[in-house]
């Protein structure tokens, strides 16, 4: 009996990380609802603005960078709750904590998949919605770049909140309250970059600050998330 090898094992020390990401991506493909919801939310919110404010391009184009960034941020927030919840309920999280690998690395793998399934699609979708808001055409690359960079920071920061609120029934609001203050700087520099691109001022400072925020989150968030997971699971 020959069985096709659909789940070939990676080799080397990264094996658990790769297995973790592969499993998460597989789960994502099997249940598309989880990652399609934030995208649908993003699209719905943006389509409502021309209806609610004014279809005039001159009005919308000044608001567009902020509106796109706020809607993307809220869509990310919507997706955070599920980041560890299923694993906590079915006992997988317990197994993660018992794995001999460092927990922050496993957390990083989970966050990477979260970014691929929410942040990246949001960034790719943003130009289409930008057309709807009459965003000046030259700023599309900057919109995508700032969203891609910023949403990675949002995923990392959000993971801390998600880990802290696992044990809280209907912890969505608490999660938002915890995470939103930390999201504000990302929002400021993210939409600032797009506005700078439209206005013709240098975008590099905004992107550099966004990158600095990402670097900071990358350095601290996995450890904070790991600690939060341990606290939540044993509380």
């Amino acid at each position: 009996m020959s069985r096709p090898e659909r789940y070939a094992e990676p080799s080397g020390a990264n094996r658990p990380l790769i297995a973790m990401m592969r499993r998460d991506l597989l789960l994502m493909m099997r249940s598309p609802g989880a990652w399609l919801n934030p995208l649908a939310f993003f699209a719905l919110v943006i389509t409502l603005f021309p209806v609610g404010i004014s279809p005039a391009a001159s009005v919308l184009s000044t608001l567009a960078p902020g509106l796109l960034w706020v809607a993307a941020l809220l869509a990310t927030l919507l997706s955070l709750e599920g980041m560890f919840r299923d694993d906590a309920e079915d006992g997988s999280l317990e197994q993660l904590l018992l794995a001999p690998q460092p927990l922050p690395l496993l957390v990083l793998a989970r966050v990477a998949v979260h970014w691929v399934s929410t942040g990246l699609p949001l960034a790719l979708m943003a130009p289409v919605l930008g057309i709807m808001l009459a965003l000046p055409s030259g700023s599309y690359p900057m919109l995508m770049a700032s969203l891609a960079l910023g949403s990675a920071a949002l995923s990392l920061i959000g993971a801390i909140g998600a880990a802290l609120t696992i044990g809280v029934a209907r912890g969505g609001i608490l999660l938002s309250l915890l995470v939103l203050p930390l999201y504000v700087p990302v929002l400021i520099f993210g939409s600032g970059a797009v506005q700078a691109a439209i206005g013709g001022t240098p975008v590099a400072p905004h992107l550099a600050l966004l990158g600095a925020l990402l670097a900071l989150a990358l350095a601290l968030a996995p450890w904070a998330t790991a600690a939060a997971l341990r606290i939540s699971l044993n509380a």
Partner: peptide, 23 residues
């Protein structure tokens, strides 16, 4: 108590993850 299995994945896929996680 909890099985640590993902309902959407097959038995083989679940086990592959557990073995890999165990190194």
């Amino acid at each position: 108590h909890a099985s640590a299995l993902k309902p959407a994945l097959s038995a083989l896929e679940n086990l592959a993850w557990h073995a890999a996680l165990a190194g």
